[in-house]
Amino acid sequence: MHTQVVKPAGSSREGLYFVLTTAVVIAVAAICIMHRTRAEPERVLLEYQISGYKDLNSFKQGTFVALYTAAMEIDAAHDNNEGTWLSVKDLQERFMPPFAHDRAWAMSGKLIWTQKILNKDMIHATAYLGKPSISDISGSFLLVLLHDHSTEGDYQIREPEHDEGPFKIWYSGETDVDFPERLSVRSLAIMGWKEVIPYTGDNEMKRIKG
């Protein structure tokens, strides 16, 4: 036997819980995102890397951007041509900068390109070395492409933010370099090559925000 006073409605704490939950969600999200972006190698330039938009002058940048675009073409062509890499001659015939001898090429140091192919079983690799024939304008560029066909199916999942992308572009201030024997990241870094990291959305944000 007991007495109950009926409580009026409206004393609910819906608003409070809503704000609390929102705060918790944002806090957790902030922690997760900080953790996630810290794990991204691109956010920080390692010792052997340089930035494509900060550290190269405009001529070298021009070569770099052209090489980047060419790399994507070579990469796609490799998939379509059943495993053959385009030769320097192929690229010149297609007027593909920076391989083609056009005006931009002339102004950017007249790089002479040579290629090495290192295919082994299911792993196809190639490298293109560009050495300047006019000094004082540019250094040397090295484009390395790697396709690992031993993964399941023939499908390559392209995740450009992933470190093991299908190609890397390296730069060296030296104008008289030998074609590197070993193309692994460590070997190239030891010999003084610097991996060029392309312009990213992050950089755009910094440019806008000043």
């Binding site: 999200a29 997760c32 995102i33 996630r36 972006t37 991204e40 995740e159 933010e161 959305g201 992050d202």
Partner: peptide
């Protein structure tokens, strides 16, 4: 914009 990989920005 917060820097998550754009194929799986699950946190945001």
């Amino acid at each position: 914009i917060l820097g998550e990989p754009y194929t799986s920005p699950y946190v945001s």
